[in-house]
Amino acid sequence: RLHIEVEGTELMKKLVEEAKRRNLNVRAKVENGKWIIEID
């Protein structure tokens, strides 16, 4: 499991799109103003 903290929506969208393209499980949520992304 990969755990990433990202500031900025554009970067988050790119990460999520790339993960979906590779058929990975992606969860994204906002915590303290940062995107928290978990990829399995």
Rank of each mutant, 00 (worst) to 15 (best):
R27L: 11
D40T: 13
N25S: 08
K20V: 12
V16W: 09
K20E: 09
L11T: 10
E31S: 10
R21E: 08
T9K: 10
E31G: 03
I37W: 02
N25P: 11
H3A: 12
D40P: 03
R27K: 13
R27S: 15
R22D: 06
G33A: 00
E5A: 08
K14M: 12
I36S: 01
L11A: 14
G8E: 13
R22T: 04
E31R: 08
W35I: 12
E5N: 07
E5P: 05
A19C: 12
R21F: 04
N25Q: 12
W35V: 08
A19L: 14
E18M: 13
W35T: 05
E7R: 11
V30M: 15
K29Y: 15
R22K: 12
V26M: 03
K20W: 04
A19F: 12
I36M: 03
I36D: 03
M12W: 05
R22F: 04
N25D: 11
L11H: 11
R1F: 14
K20G: 05
G33F: 00
G8P: 05
K14V: 10
H3Q: 13
L2I: 14
T9Y: 15
W35R: 02
M12G: 04
V26Y: 03
I37E: 01
T9R: 09
V30R: 15
R22Y: 06
K34H: 13
K13Q: 14
H3M: 14
I36T: 04
R21Y: 03
K29L: 08
I39G: 01
L24F: 03
V6N: 05
L24E: 03
N25T: 10
V30C: 15
K34P: 00
E18G: 06
A19N: 01
I36V: 13
E18R: 06
V6W: 07
L11K: 08
E7S: 12
N25V: 14
N23V: 01
E7L: 14
W35A: 03
K29H: 15
A19S: 04
E31I: 14
K14G: 05
K29M: 11
K20S: 06
N32K: 05
K34L: 05
V30T: 10
T9E: 15
A19V: 06
M12H: 01
K34I: 13
A28D: 02
E18Q: 10
K20I: 14
